[in-house]
Design a protein around this nucleic acid. Structure first.
Length: 479
RNA sequence: GCGGAAAUAGCUCAUUUGGUAGAGCGAUAGCUUCCCAAGCUAUAGGUGGCGGGUUCGAGCCCCGUUUUCCGCUCCA
């Protein structure tokens, strides 16, 4: 796997130095795996978000968007399987690095004792375990494991970590009185907000299968290991679409969305060889088929987006737990059924890292006379935080006034940036560093014939254009 | 979570065995400048991640902690 650690480090530094991404709460030493988007990072994020949203909703007549709350009824997560799969105390063996569920480990040891004819000892052990589990006494559980001399079956040692409660979901209290009943979770995925609103949207939108519901929003996972910059964060943003189809047609729709989503990535102008599909062999509890779209980051091929065929798992589960019918009457076949679901789920933060990785370029511009280089972010113009910089060549002779007029004309249409400080070359380079695709320079000739030079970021070429063509030229490139 | 490495100015890094911190780039202000990091002048930025300890004295040694990166592990 080709990796380029130096490039990854350089991108992280660049992101901080030029106002894209900062570590959260940095003045307090930061918070692990939590990041803030700065002035240009937030623009970039918004542009990517908007591009996805538009391509999903506006461009598909049968897909609509929603914006569900982060807080959801606690039963949601019982139905989805999130509570049961992630609430058991675990312990790791330090030598084999194997992780065990504490109850499984102790029960296995009790079985062993029983086979050795020590039934009383085994029963006592299980009784102690149940008492400790009931009290959530994790330290007590570890002591129990150590006192019983329970060994790892792989390493054969009793070199254990502390017992820890693994729950990927963050919990908090709803209401000011904290008791068991009011505990709720921050959603670990946005998908459930779509499933619980399936009927609302289908009925009020008069949606006919096949149709989709899209959503963009924050999700929270208390990852054990969260690393690699914004690639894996504890608070992150997902862009998801659940596509509801007639049972029996799910395979063709799965293939359709697999292809369709890759097309979206390629529409950003990113070379196809940077992407690959990774089909899952081992499937999650809900999945019938699943694949990832992986992008070749500087740290290797990594998942950016998942396409999953979820069957009727989610809607059926919610139907079971809520006791509300979540079905669709299909006029074409005259049948009621729980629709099958194809999910496309892309990480917004990962997409930002993808776009940054693709855009980040160090160029050597040296000539025999002079050493020269630049760092340029070659964003697709439609994603660039700033679309146009307006630069008077000199800050005198009335040039700033003309530049200001151009600013006023363009500002309402796209993000513009005005700058008169420093030599023109330096200003160009500064714009390169934050990925501004176009620079307009006002010079003395402008006063005579109302033309300016437009300088292109990637080629560094310039051409002379009339002032009244600026809007048209830039807008053509960013749409 | 295990193991490894690291943390000094916005960035990249110095500070040779412990003696109260510097550079380049960048930034800000001004002068100059007719198209690619130019030049000149001035200015601002660090209780050396944080907390203890050893010492007459710690950026440097020791312990803890936080954060980051790498490998393994995990990843609905």
């Amino acid at each position: 796997m080709a990796t380029d650690t130096n490039k990854f480090q350089a991108i992280i530094s660049h992101c901080k130095e030029y106002g894209f991404i900062f570590q959260s709460s940095e003045i307090y030493d930061g918070l692990s795996a939590v990041y803030d988007y700065g002035q240009w990072g937030s623009e970039l994020k918004k542009n990517i978000r908007d591009y996805w949203w538009k391509s999903m909703t506006q461009m598909h007549e049968n897909i609509v968007g929603i914006d569900a709350a982060i807080f959801m009824h606690p039963t949601t997560w019982k139905a989805s399987g999130h509570v049961d799969n992630f609430s058991d105390p675990m312990i790791d063996n330090k030598d084999s690095n194997k992780r065990y569920r504490v109850d499984h480990l102790i029960e296995a040891h009790a079985d062993l004792l029983e086979k050795e004819g020590k039934k009383a000892e085994a029963d006592a052990l299980l009784a102690s375990m149940d008492a400790l589990l009931a009290k959530d006494d994790l330290a007590g559980l570890k002591t129990l494991i150590e006192d019983s001399k329970i060994k790892c079956t792989v390493s054969g040692t009793a070199n254990w970590t502390d017992v820890r409660q693994f729950n990927l979901m963050f919990s908090t209290q709803l209401g000011s009185v904290s008791d068991e009943a009011s505990e709720i979770y921050l959603r670990p995925e946005t998908a459930q907000g779509i499933f619980v609103n399936f009927l609302n949207v289908q009925k009020t939108g008069r949606m006919k299968i096949p149709f989709g519901i899209a959503q963009i929003g924050k999700a929270f996972r208390n990852e054990i290991v969260a690393r690699q910059f914004v690639f894996r964060m504890r608070e992150f943003e997902q862009m998801e679409m659940q596509f509801f189809v007639r049972p029996g047609t799910e395979d063709q729709w799965y293939e359709y969305w697999k292809a369709e989503r890759l097309k979206w990535h390629l529409s950003l102008g990113i070379p196809a060889e940077r992407y690959r599909y990774h089909d899952h062999v081992k499937l999650a509890h809900y999945a019938k088929a699943a694949c990832d779209i992986e992008y070749e980051f500087p740290i290797g091929f990594k998942e950016v987006e998942g396409i999953h065929s979820r069957g009727d798992f989610d809607l059926s589960q919610h139907q079971l737990y809520s006791k509300k019918k979540l079905q669709y009457f299909d006029n074409e076949i005259n049948q009621n059924y729980v629709p099958y679901v194809i999910e496309t789920s892309i990480g917004l933060d990962r997409t930002i890292l993808l776009v940054l990785s693709e855009a980040y370029t160090e160029e050597d511009l040296s000539t025999p006379e002079k050493q020269d280089s630049r760092v340029v972010l070659k964003f697709p113009p439609k994603l660039a935080p700033i679309k146009l910089a307006v630069l008077p060549l000199l800050k005198k002779d009335g040039l700033p006034e003309i530049a200001r007029q151009i600013m006023d004309t363009c500002k309402p249409h796209f993000y513009c940036f005005y700058e008169e400080k420093d030599a023109i070359g330096k200003r160009y380079r500064r714009m390169d560093a934050i990925g501004t695709p176009f620079c307009i320079t006002v010079d003395h000739q402008t006063k005579e014939d109302n033309t300016v030079t437009i300088r292109y970021r990637d080629s560094m070429q310039q051409e002379r254009i009339p002032i009244n063509k600026i809007l048209e030229i830039v807008q053509k490139q960013i749409n």
